[in-house]
């Protein structure tokens, strides 16, 4: 039975530093990727980016024809705005 096993802790130090740096970088990428909406989907997974909240985007009232201002609508993250709306 092996009772004493000496490990040269400096032997792997360089590799361990590289691993830790790799982890820190990949962890950020992993969490960001986890929060990104899947390809082709309009809405992200629950809680993605917005922390689960629905963002209410107020639109500018249509004033050019002196009509009624359009009603506020809710837009989810990832949903494209209708053509003609401000900043579209």
């Amino acid at each position: 039975m092996e009772y004493y096993h000496y490990v040269n802790i400096f032997e792997t130090k360089g590799l361990e530093y590289i691993l830790v740096i790799c982890f820190l970088i990949t962890f950020v990428i992993f969490v960001r990727r986890l929060n990104m909406p899947p390809k082709g989907a309009t809405g992200g997974p629950p809680g993605a980016l917005a922390g689960g909240k629905v963002i209410v985007v107020p639109e500018e009232p249509q004033r050019d024809n002196h009509g009624e201002p359009s009603a506020k609508r809710t837009t989810e993250i990832g949903e494209s705005r209708p053509p003609g709306s401000p900043n579209s």
Partner: peptide
């Protein structure tokens, strides 16, 4: 669970490398 397991796997891997 995914995030915690990711951290766990990394710690496990570093321990594995450290222990040679």
């Amino acid at each position: 669970a995914a995030i915690t397991m990711y951290v766990y796997l990394f710690v496990k891997f570093v321990i594995f490398v450290h222990g040679q």
